[in-house]
Amino acid sequence: MKGLKADGSPYQVMSVDDSPITRKMIKKALEPEGFAIIGEAGNGKEAVELYAKIKPDIITMDVTMPIMDGLDAALAIKKINPAQKIIMLSAMSDNDILADAHARGIDDFCSKPFKPEEIVSRVLEVLQR
């Protein structure tokens, strides 16, 4: 089980995406490997509010969302905890967006669509840095 820490407890994940279908796909990819999805949010504002309550090990964050986008939410979370691990997931990954994500200290950027094994390996790679 790749999603378990050395002490046997699961890595805790917060999934942020305005598409419930993508959140479901992330859950289906990560949970069988032992990761625990401990919180979900449908926009950046919800994500920042939820983050303060649950403090996950890692966050998967969509870019384009209503109310507050993922880049602004990631910046707000990094201000609370600069060490927080965040992976952006987006269908849009042009050079401007990648540069913006890099400037905000995002740990990794994964383009949609993704295969289940790809998201598992990206999450693990970031967690183990």
């Binding site: 598409s19 279908i21 269908a91 849009m92 042009d94 949609k112």
Partner: peptide
């Protein structure tokens, strides 16, 4: 409805990423 929306969103996002990278400055958003 949501599955169709996500498939369309990802196709158009991938395509517009290609257009933006081939023509810097367009800054097209979805």
């Amino acid at each position: 409805l949501l599955s169709g929306a996500e498939i369309g969103n990802i196709i158009s996002g991938n395509a517009i990423t290609g257009v933006n990278n081939s023509q810097p400055g367009l800054n097209i958003r979805l």
